[in-house]
Write a protein that binds this DNA or RNA. Structure first.
Ligand SMILES: [Mn+2]
Ligand SMILES: [Mn+2]
Ligand SMILES: [Zn+2]
Ligand SMILES: [Zn+2]
Lengths: 126, 126
DNA sequence: AATTTAACGCAACTAAGTTGCAACAATGAT
DNA sequence: ATCATTGTTGCAACTTAGTTGCGTTAAATT
């Protein structure tokens, strides 16, 4: 899979990610681009962009899907695994470039960790 | 809110949690109890049990809701906030009684952390 | 036993995400 | 520039987790 053709729709979606580094929920994206393309197209393009290592996805606090730009990924190596931060005041979601060490758990082998932190973001902080 | 009447349905739901300490997804519960009660009833009972501090909820890897017994909670104090572990082999989900320290993040105030670990559980571990 | 009202079943609904298919358009070859 | 190929799109229908309204049932209290 992956993006093969540079269509207008793909460019529009990529532009949404280029103008702001914070994450975007699919719900927001579908609504924001409803005049440009069908929601099915949004879902399909995001799928392919993720396959290509251009964006990565995760689930927000309601279990809805969010996407953000990858930094140094490719279709071969998807190394964008990190915690995410959702502001409980303004709703903004950001990638956190921090490492949260997971303690060893007896008789269990942790392979993936999904961490969603919630709190006040830079702008909403007192 | 909260559970006011000890109905047959409430007892059936509580029994599901008493016979096994691992978490149960709502999807599983609705299916397992379909002969005993309507799915609406399952959802409503779980809501109330959570209000009462008898169970707590969290989202599994697909964003679907899971519930597990609380240990020392009440309707006043819900202190059951901890990481959860989902086995990628057998699907079992467990509460982890460990503390994962979240490092300080500059200009941001973390208030809640949602941590879902995935890997091999005790039974599926090599 | 009668009264009160929380809890229940049922059907209809909501909303995120998916699928099948015909029409369209990006791309490379002629 | 035109054609042929085939990846991409729009649309409508679908799937499924979870919710809501309402009339009926049954737990608790008298
Ligand atoms: Mn990220
Ligand atoms: Mn738990
Ligand atoms: Zn904020
Ligand atoms: Zn397992």
């Amino acid at each position: 899979m992956g993006v093969l053709r540079k269509t207008k729709s793909v460019e529009v979606v990529l532009h949404e990610f280029s103008k702001d580094s914070s994450a975007i929920s699919v719900i927001t994206l579908v609504e924001r681009l409803q005049l440009d393309m069908n929601k099915t197209t949004v879902y399909r393009i995001l799928n392919k962009l993720e396959d290509d290592g251009i964006v990565h996805s995760f689930l927000g606090k309601n279990g809805h899907k969010w996407y953000a730009k990858c930094h140094n990924c490719s279709s071969a190596v998807h190394k964008d695994v990190h915690p995410h931060f959702q502001c409980i005041s303004c709703g903004k979601v950001e990638c956190l470039e921090i490492n949260v060490p997971i303690p060893d758990i007896p008789n269990r082998k942790v392979e993936v960790s999904q961490i969603l932190l919630q709190g006040k973001c830079e702008a909403c902080y007192d």
